[in-house]
Amino acid sequence: MTVDTPVRSQQRSRVETAGAWTGLLRVPGIRTWGPFAVVVAIWALIAELELFPSAFFVGPGTVFETTVRLIERGILPSYIGDSLLRLAVGAGFGVVIGVALGFLIGLNKYARKFSWPMLLFFQAIGDIAWLPILIIWFGFSLTSVTLVIVYTVTFPLIISIVAGIDSIPQNLMRAAASLGAKRWRGIVEVVVPAALPGISSGIRTGLGYGWRALIAAEIIIGTSGVGFMMFEARRQGDVSHVFIGMVVLGALWYATDALILAPFEKETVERWGMVEGIGR
């Protein structure tokens, strides 16, 4: 019996044509830290040349020393902890609400007709545009911060889940129905996994927006947290704290991607060939 050859992994042929540079990038440490090393080197060089006065621009060395001091005094860990907890609470609610509403709107045509104009309307009212009214209602409280994050996470999630459901190939649903899948079985067995690329990109976008909204909220109503730290430092003219805040924001997002989002996508949508490797 003739058996056709399976498709070979595309990655292999990509590697075969690679030159020395790409070969170097395959070393795990270099691949991850190499680009940062270049940026840090340029940063150090600019600081070393004293192109800007040190009150405006500090080098990586100063930032590192200040970071160590802030960690020793417990300030940085506690601020990061505060920010992450707020994000986790807000994003947790946001994801639950967003996934539920996303599937409801994606699957029910009445829910869609009712809510779609509203979604577009509220999408335009950006996260921080809600802060004035939230502060009036809930004061400078954790509730206000959480609500802003829930809001920013929910909307992109709903929209990309609906788009994900809409882009499920018609024949996939037909195949399921002709194999005997009834409405609910079809949703569980086909719609949910087929919408996963939409869900994962929605969570990525939503979390990214939520993270930014958190910093904005902390700047305006914060009493602690990374955003608060940066803005306080600006008031006291301490540039190094501002720099630390920026580095921390980037590093935390990088960690979220590397530890949670990327592994999830690798095990699901990429494993199944539904999307190409994201950013790799």
Binding site: P169, N171, L172, R174, A175, A176, E189, V190, P193, A194, L196, T268, W272, G273, M274
Partner: peptide, 8 residues
């Protein structure tokens, strides 16, 4: 024609 297999 397009197989319509479940990718997952």
């Amino acid at each position: 024609q397009d197989f319509a297999l479940f990718p997952w």
